[in-house]
Write a protein that binds this DNA or RNA. Sequence first.
DNA 1: GATGAATGAGCCTTCATTCAT
DNA 2: GATGAATGAAGGCTCATTCAT
Lengths: 207, 207, 207, 207
Amino acid sequence: MGLKERRQREKQARRNQILDAARALLFDKGLQATSINQIAKQAELGVGTIYFYYKNKEEIFADLQEEGLEILFARILKTANLDLPPDEKLRRIGRQYVRFSKENRNYYDIINYFLAAPEIFFAPSLKSKVDRHGSQIIGLIVEIISAGNRTGLFHSRNSRRDAITFWGTLHGLIQFKKLKDTVLAGDSHQSLLDHAVEHFIGGLQGN
Amino acid sequence: MGLKERRQREKQARRNQILDAARALLFDKGLQATSINQIAKQAELGVGTIYFYYKNKEEIFADLQEEGLEILFARILKTANLDLPPDEKLRRIGRQYVRFSKENRNYYDIINYFLAAPEIFFAPSLKSKVDRHGSQIIGLIVEIISAGNRTGLFHSRNSRRDAITFWGTLHGLIQFKKLKDTVLAGDSHQSLLDHAVEHFIGGLQGN
Amino acid sequence: MGLKERRQREKQARRNQILDAARALLFDKGLQATSINQIAKQAELGVGTIYFYYKNKEEIFADLQEEGLEILFARILKTANLDLPPDEKLRRIGRQYVRFSKENRNYYDIINYFLAAPEIFFAPSLKSKVDRHGSQIIGLIVEIISAGNRTGLFHSRNSRRDAITFWGTLHGLIQFKKLKDTVLAGDSHQSLLDHAVEHFIGGLQGN
Amino acid sequence: MGLKERRQREKQARRNQILDAARALLFDKGLQATSINQIAKQAELGVGTIYFYYKNKEEIFADLQEEGLEILFARILKTANLDLPPDEKLRRIGRQYVRFSKENRNYYDIINYFLAAPEIFFAPSLKSKVDRHGSQIIGLIVEIISAGNRTGLFHSRNSRRDAITFWGTLHGLIQFKKLKDTVLAGDSHQSLLDHAVEHFIGGLQGN
DNA sequence: GATGAATGAGCCTTCATTCAT
DNA sequence: GATGAATGAAGGCTCATTCAT
């Protein structure tokens, strides 16, 4: 048992070593420009070794994405645990996601990359990781909405669907940032997001 | 006089020839896997000829994206022109976008690609095209919301921001399709979209 | 006759137009990076037109080289015509060539390019142009050495060979400039050239 | 221990294999016309393999140039070690360099290429190799001139500068070979070189 | 477990040149 | 005379992946 554990621990250590290298490169040069050979060199490992621990490049990035999701989750969790009314929590979560997309730009990009890519890309094994974390975040929002329901503040009939809608709205609108000069017509992106969150909350309360 | 015109027409014909080839390949193999060399072969033209008409790969895709946006716009426009109450129009527009993402999957993918890619990617010239079409679509939705306001059905205080929010919600949620097994927990993606549209409409009416 | 002349004049005008473009590009981007297509664009002419006036790229550069040789020749000629003793003339000519290699760097490079290239390159027609100008320069030096002989200052037994030797020494040593850090061991390139000229003059006087 | 050594040896063997191919092509078709793809084919290796051993084309040629410089150095060294008076040594070195430029035409061309190319070309790493070998050769000549000084045959005040002058003269004049029909006016190139060497020696003795 | 040499298809792009109009 | 669209071979180079050691 102890042996098996040690094996496991060492394996994880190596994976971390690889991840450290990949992360450094990714953050420095971007997703496309980062190659396995470069990761190997950066990690001071042989290329073959990388392939021993990761089936392919995509899997490495999936792990990195997971990291990003964990950071994001932690932020959301912290917000969800504050002693605030549910609507205020939603507002803050909205802002947290926007902040994350700015402050953790690289993690945001990689998450976005997988989410926006055509489905063909995903090997099922990768998918499950992303999904698991996504579910956790959705779970937190579901909980907030349910809490609002309980206090009579919200009137959601399907808090899961509403939670996903909320997240989808944030996710979609953040991608619009690059349209600010024309579609947004000079309106501040942040105001838009705030507006959308308000609209969403209004919808929860409305009925 | 006629000569210059003919030249111009022929030049456009060649561009179409190239676009046809690019579209065929793109739709068959996806964005990343489509190379200029392949396009040339498919178009039965020399590689150099492609470069004579397009500065690079991205410009070809920008043209293709414009095609997609035109199709999408036509769909939305048709819906917007129906003789229906504003809320119903929004419902149908929501469904149209989803349908577009399925039936014109390839066009959807290419639009999505540009929208979701990290900002760095955009050459300003390409950007303007996308933006212009995006603005047109948003414009239609603004008009619908305004109409709803006028009849007292909606109470939107900022129809432009609401329109963008609406579109952003659709855009974001469609990307979630690939999460259906876990995050969506088996719930139908279509129901989710419908729900979101309903929620959005509720928000418009609410106050 | 008048017609033929006009034709000739117009032809030369077009060639100058091309040369102007080629020169501008060459001086801006270097020899290798300048293509016929670019020259055509810069000259606001069709590519085909370029080929009507020049058989190929090399011929254009040969004309440019001739320009350079003319500038160089003018410099040398001016020096040769000064009212100075022959040895002083040689000293000044040496300095003139060095200055030319610096101040007219681009012309120098193109002259050097043809001179240093493996023989295979030269079409006989191009060769003659270069040779003619080269001969003129050598001729000036021959004259100086001969004048020195006449006044008893020099004792050259073969002023033509000596002239070529002089020129060859300058030519060879200027190419060594890029070795200044190691072979020249920090010694100033200019001092080296001066030294070489002095040595050469010493050889002329010596016997 | 033995393993590491063997690895090293094999690595060198591959580099030689590549060099053999590059040399063969270079000597057959000239410098400009030799491409990495061709080298790979000739060496019966994948293109990628070439890039595994050499960073780029220039690095291969630098190695080849080093080969050439070694051959040249060996010739000069042999001459310098003969039991002959210094002036005679210089005469023979002159002839050796001319012979080298004929008999090892291809090595000569590649050395010349680097020496004559506009400065921009050189990566510092490549430069050092050339310089090192160049310095060695100059060193030999310096030694000969110094020896001549010691026996009273020469009166060089700066044997290093004189050595470089000597070498520069040879280097420059050899490039004039292609001008033999006009500038040299039918005079034999070899006689010219002999003359120049004699002139140089005269300059050493003169004062 | 770890290595790293080897691959080779394929990428994007350039360019001198031709030729029908 | 002038044009400029068309060519396509060729260039340098990258990179995920494999496999013998």
